[in-house]
Design a protein around this nucleic acid. Sequence first.
DNA 1: CCTACCGATCGGTAGG
DNA 2: CCTACCGATCGGTAGG
Lengths: 205, 205
Amino acid sequence: MAGRPRDDRARNVILRRAADIASQDGLEGLSIGRLATDLGVSKSGLFGYFGSKEELQLATIRTATGIYLDEVIQPALTVPPGLGRVRRLCENWLSYSQRRVFPGGCFFFAVTAEFDARPGRVRDAVAAASLDWSRLVTRTIDDARQLGELADDTDADQLAFELIAFLETANARSLLHDDPNAYERGRTAIRKHLDAATADPGNTA
Amino acid sequence: MAGRPRDDRARNVILRRAADIASQDGLEGLSIGRLATDLGVSKSGLFGYFGSKEELQLATIRTATGIYLDEVIQPALTVPPGLGRVRRLCENWLSYSQRRVFPGGCFFFAVTAEFDARPGRVRDAVAAASLDWSRLVTRTIDDARQLGELADDTDADQLAFELIAFLETANARSLLHDDPNAYERGRTAIRKHLDAATADPGNTA
DNA sequence: CCTACCGATCGGTAGG
DNA sequence: CCTACCGATCGGTAGG
C-alpha cells in the first residue's frame, strides 16, 4: 500500500499544498491541473498518486486531520484533564485559526459548508472528522465536570455545542471581515461561558 | 434599467432557482449552462439577462437578501422592540433554516465559507449582507437593553456575536449530520443566554 | 432569445 | 512520471 519513502515525502508535499488550496478555494476548486502546475510536475504524474479526484480530496482531508491533531489536539493533551484542558483546547483552536496554519482559516470550516449538502464519500469524511472533534470537546468538558471543576448539572454536549459555535464564528468573522477583534470576541465568549459553568452552588445561570 | 414586467418575472424565476442551487453547490457551482438546462431556456438567452457570471452571482445574492428580509427580518418587526423581538428574530432564523427555505440551508452560510478567502465583488457583497444582519441583531439587543429588559451592562455587540454563533452552528450541524436535535441545541443555547442577560441585579454571570 | 461556435480548462487515459 | 490526447463542460461571443 505505502510507496517508497521518497514517494511518501512527495505525496506529503502534494497534500500539504492541496490542503492550503482547499482551505481557500474549496475541495472542488482544488484542480489536479492547477496543483500540478503549482508544484512543477506533470498532471498525469500527480494524478498517478491518487487515481481520481475524489481520492485526492479524501487524502487531503486525512492530511488536514493530521495537521489539526498536531496543532490543536496533541498540545492540549499535555495539560492534565479538567477545566484547564478545556481552555487550552479552545485557545489552541483560536490560535490555529488566527495564525492561518491554513491560509483560508480552518480547513474543516471551509469544506464543511462546501460539502454539507452534497452526499458522497467526501461529505461522509468531513462529517466523521467533525463528529470526532465534537466528541473530544464533549469528553474533555465531562472530565472537568467529573473532577468537580464544572457544575454537576453541566450538560457537556450542550456546552460543547456552544464553545464550538464561538470558535467557528470567530474564524468566519475574521476571514469575511478581516476583523482582528473577532478572536477577542470568541475568547470573551468562551471565558464568560466557562466561568458561568464553573462549580458554584449559588449559580443559577 | 428595469425591463418589461415579463422580463422581470422571468428574471425572478431564474434568480430564485439560482439561489437554490447556490445554497447547495455554491456560487461557483452555479453554472450558466446548468441553470439554463434546468429552466428549459438557451444558455445565451439566460446569459443575456446578466452579461457575466459575476453579475449573475451578485444578482443571486440580492435575490437571497430579499427572501431573507421576508422570512427572517420583516416578521420580527411586527413584534414591538424589546426582548420579545430579539427572541422572535432568532426563532425566525432557526425556522428559516429548518424549513429549508433554501434547500442547502442558510444561503449566506453557504456562500460565506465559499468566498471569505476570495477577494472581489462577490465577497464584498456577502460581507456587506453579513454586516447588515449583524448590526440589526446588535441594534435589536440594544433596544431591549435600553427598555430595561436586558441588564444595563449588556454588551450588545458581544451578545449578538454569541447568538449568531448559535444560529449558524445549528444550521451547519443540521446539514452536515442530518441531526434533528441541532435546532433544539440552538434554541436551548439562545434561551439560556438571554435568560442570563435579563435585567437582574443579583445575576453575576 | 435562438443555434452554433470560440478558447480554456476540467477529470481522466493511452502509450511509452 | 512524461507527452499527447480524449470528451465534456466552462464562460462568453457571433450572427441572425
